[in-house]
Write a protein that binds this DNA or RNA. Structure first.
Length: 854
RNA sequence: GCCCCUGUGGCGGAAUUGGUAGACGCGGCAGACUCAAAAUCUGUUUCUCGCAAGGGAGUGGGGGUUCAAGUCCCUCCAGGGGCACCA
């Protein structure tokens, strides 16, 4: 018997699947569909272990569902716009398009060598004009529908690179590449109106019952809806005023000041005539944009000298401060401060000697003796010192206060969200151009549909700072489509999250000349099972949910939610190694030296073994999937990915683990390709009667079918693997010569091959052929467990005395409780444990347990 | 600071959802085959007392509910994650 040749066999079946177009699908309205999608990769150059884990999970699901009779859509594409391509262009003098397409070619081959059941005829790449032309059309529709707009907003500006930086490109307040101090700057940017859907997106979370609770919670917190009131404060001695947002309008009578954000228009206005305030605002600006920096800064303010009228207390005036902790981006950028019932307001009031008036006193405390100490009182209670609100509870007082505000025209009930509109402008080359033209007389003019796509110019360089589109000699100079005058093309490109917000729908009809073919999206969408990393829990998944609604509003799609089921996988981790200088060492450079020490292969020097962490190039604790595929084959790698660790948790990559999977591949090969004992012909009739060993084996097979099916259904891949291994162990031990043993062995082999099919498709297909089947395994049905074999005639019942196990008894299934009790009490260890005492009570749980209480 | 998750042998993990804790795998130990090694196979492997038969302890710590708790409740500890001046 020859050893299993993974390389040869895997290539053979990949070719057969491809040639027979097994995984290419089309809409079949009378068959149930199932859309499995893994988050598509960024073409960084080579696949990594995270990809292997992600795509294995998706493939197992796709193959399993296909065997169960579903019409399965399982596509693949490339999220191919983005900054790394520009960095590569800068470093290696290679054009982003060339770099990207080369990477795609390499990674496509790598993914194909994994044996994924993907319909490659649907492959898409987001950096190609055939893809993003539709995005440009969508944008223009969004623009017309008021879902996209342009406004000034703050950006991180790198004065050396002459470019806008993303938040993650700002490290300790400095540009990641230039090291220059980043400055905040206002710039006109494009936005998508995601906040228009804030409530819908929040309420929609409720119905996403096949999403992890964790992700649902994160999105809920991200949107962060809070109910309260908008209150208008009138400036004394002026005609204007400003609005604040508050969740506690009930505490208005306790207000002792108002505070504005340093970016508030009124603050900026005051600074023009108040040099000290101007200096204060400049100081706030220097703090940087990172929230961590804001956090560390001491809370302080500056008195503007202005006062506002209290909306409820006639004649009362409140001072107006500018305070560094007020965010312009949240609420209205202004607050009123009630020091008695908000800790931050209390700290501020103490610092600037402002009055502190309690207006809510806690239950069970004398109102007269109640004072605010070091802690503001934020709990429920009864209103005092509050005029018409006195005596009310907090909830009632909020309602009454809002009603009064509305009566006197000083405010209204309002719902506020933390969620902000999605800024999609990037001052970058390698992205989808925003298809508009700026005209001096006509303003913002959409590029006419006939002129789309707006494509990127090829003749660009990356060796100087700034946006290559902006400094291109001709690209941006165009005539206005309306008036024909010289105009300027928009040089911003879209955030790459835009492309990934609709790609799942494009897969339904990837070569349609319209963005979506309606009958195709109506058939395939929503995605039944979406799989990816939890790092996309908020942004990508929220943007895609928004986009789906926006597309529905513009008539593109008929659904609200893009992903009916979501699974977030854990990371792939590995031990870390450091040499004596603290330098990171690759696992492939490590070997076990004499005495069990880990040593560097080349230098022979000792390395220290650190904790297991997410595989990352910076720590060098990476294992290249290409080497694993070459050495062990795809099936072993896939099996290891599914074994041991539950898929939602982190997986620890170990050498011995992949060895174990490789051993299993060979074991199953020996078991089935070179069986020890007779095997009935494929399709042989089932014998009328079996001996005891055959019946037991048959039960085991049916139990395995039942367990593995349930496990795969619920994404419990590690348990599915354990159950298949149990079955393999049992078949190896099955040496019966009873009548029918050859039939049982055949049944066991066929079943084992079917059950491992989704995880190890190549060896399964090969064994399936060797077992004499004409049809491909990939086209065969999933086995169904016969319930009659799942129930045993006898059961093992545990016998406890005072909750402690003392023995077990074998009883016929569903035996009378009295009979079971008698048998239990007759057990020697039970009698001993009872010490001659009479049982006070005996609990019998049918077919499970007997507990004797003495 | 607030919110969420996790904690089980030497290791990854399992436990029909309140009913025999440790399935399955990794590693270790002993043995078989071999001149030897690799590969493979067999046995063993929670800890502890004991020659043994047997006993005791045990799911991060403490407390509780229950005939019965890894599982439910309270509390503390540790690790991980999310949000973070959110008005």
């Amino acid at each position: 018997m020859s050893r299993y040749n993974a390389k040869e066999t895997e290539a053979k079946w990949q070719e057969i699947w491809r040639d027979r177009r097994i995984f290419e699908v089309s809409e079949e309205p009378d068959r149930p569909k199932y859309y499995v999608l893994e988050m598509f990769p960024y073409p960084s150059g080579r696949i990594h272990m995270g990809h292997v884990r992600n795509y294995t999970m998706g493939d197992v699901t796709a193959r399993f569902k296909r065997a169960q009779g579903f019409n399965v859509l399982h596509p693949m594409g490339w999220d191919s716009f983005g900054l790394p391509a520009e960095n590569a262009a800068f470093e290696n003098k290679v054009h982003p398009a060339i770099w990207t397409r080369q990477n795609i070619a390499v990674m496509r081959d790598q993914l194909k060598s994994m044996g994924l059941s993907i319909d490659w005829s649907r492959e898409i790449s987001t950096c190609e004009p055939e893809y993003y032309v539709h995005e440009q059309k969508m944008f223009l529709e969004f623009l017309a529908a008021g879902l996209a707009y342009r406004k000034e907003s703050w950006v991180n500006w790198d004065p050396v690179e002459n470019t806008v930086l993303a938040n993650e490109q700002v490290i300790d307040g400095r540009g990641w590449r230039s090291g220059a101090q980043v400055v905040r700057r206002r710039q006109a940017q494009w936005f998508f109106g995601i906040t228009q859907f804030a409530d819908e997106l929040l309420e929609g979370i409720e119905a996403l019952d096949r999403w992890p609770d964790k992700v649902r919670l994160m999105q809920t917190n991200w949107i962060n809806r809070s109910e309260g009131a908008r209150v208008h404060f009138q400036l004394i001695g002026r005609k204007d005023g400003f609005d604040v947002f508050t969740t506690r309008p009930d505490t208005l009578f306790g207000a002792s000041f108002c505070a504005l954000s340093p970016n508030h228009p009124l603050a900026l206005e005051c600074a023009k005539t108040d040099p000290a305030l101007a200096e204060f605002l400049a100081e706030c600006g220097r703090l940087g944009t990172s929230e961590a920096a804001l956090e560390a800064a001491e809370k302080c303010g500056h008195d503007t000298g202005l006062t506002v009228a209290h909306p409820f207390k006639d004649g009362a005036a409140l001072p107006v401060y500018v305070a560094n902790f007020i965010l312009m981006e949240y609420g209205t950028g202004a607050i009123f401060g009630c020091p008695g019932h908000d800790q931050r307001d209390l700290d501020f009031a103490r610092k600037y000697a402002l009055p502190i008036l309690p207006v809510v006193y806690p239950p069970d405390i004398e109102a007269a003796g109640f004072e605010i100490g070091a802690q503001a009182y934020v709990g429920d209670g009864v209103l005092i010192n509050s005029g018409f609100l006195d005596g009310l509870g907090v909830t009632a007082a909020i309602i009454r206060a809002i009603a009064r505000l509305e009566e006197i025209g000083a405010g209204e009930g309002k719902v506020n969200y933390r969620l902000r509109d999605w800024g999609v402008s990037r001052q970058r080359y390698w992205g989808c151009p925003v298809p508009v033209i700026h005209c001096a007389s006509c303003g913002i003019v959409p590029v006419p549909e006939g002129d789309l796509p707006v494509t990127l110019p090829d003749d660009v360089t990356f060796d100087e700072p700034g946006n290559p589109l902006d400094r291109h000699p001709t690209w941006k100079h165009v005539d206005c489509p309306l008036c024909g005058a010289a105009a300027r093309r928009e040089t911003d490109t879209f955030d790459t999250f835009v492309e990934s917000s609709w790609y799942f729908a494009r897969f339904c009809a990837p070569s349609s000349d319209r963005a979506f073919r309606r009958d195709a999206v109506d058939y395939w969408l929503p995605v039944d099972q979406y799989i990816g990393g939890v790092e996309h829990a908020v942004l990508h998944l929220l943007y895609a949910r928004f986009f789906t609604r926006a597309l529905k509003r513009c008539g593109y799609l008929g659904i609200d939610e893009p992903f009916a089921g979501l699974f977030t996988q854990g990371m792939v981790c590995h031990e870390t190694y450091q040499d004596s200088d603290g330098g990171w060492v690759y696992p492939s450079q490590i070997t076990t030296g004499p005495g069990g020490q880990m040593i560097d292969v080349e230098s022979g020097l000792r390395v220290t073994v650190g904790r297991s962490e997410k595989m990352s190039k910076s720590r060098r604790n990476v294992v290249d999937p290409a080497e694993i595929l070459e050495l062990y084959g795809a099936d072993s790698g896939r099996l290891f990915m599914m074994s041991d660790s539950p898929p939602e948790r982190d997986l620890e990559w170990t050498e011995s683990g992949i060895d174990g999977s490789w051993r299993y591949v060979n074991r199953i090969w020996r078991l089935i390709a070179a069986p020890d004992g007779a095997v009935a012909m494929a399709g042989a009739a089932q014998p009328d009667a079996f001996g005891e060993a055959c019946v037991a084996m048959t039960r085991m097979i049916h139990r395995a079918i039942f367990a593995v099916t349930a496990d795969l259904e619920l994404f419990r891949f590690n348990r599915a693997v354990a159950h298949v291994r149990e079955l393999t162990n049992a078949l190896e031990a099955f040496g019966s010569q009873e009548a029918g043993h050859d039939w049982v062995r055949r049944f066991g082999f066929d079943t084992t091959v079917k059950l491992i099919g989704p995880m190890m498709p190549h060896i399964a297909e090969e064994l399936w052929q060797r077992l004499g089947h004409e049809k491909l395994l990939a086209e065969s049905d999933w086995p169904v467990a016969d319930k009659a074999f799942l129930i045993d005639e006898t059961v093992t019942i545990a016998v406890q005395v005072k909750g402690k196990l003392r023995g077990t008894i074998e009883m016929p299934r569903d035996a009378e409780n009295a009979v079971v009790e008698q048998a239990a009490l007759a057990l020697e260890p039970v009698r001993r444990a009872m010490g001659g005492a009479a049982p006070r009570r005996v609990i019998v749980v049918t077919n499970k347990i007997v507990n004797v209480v003495v």
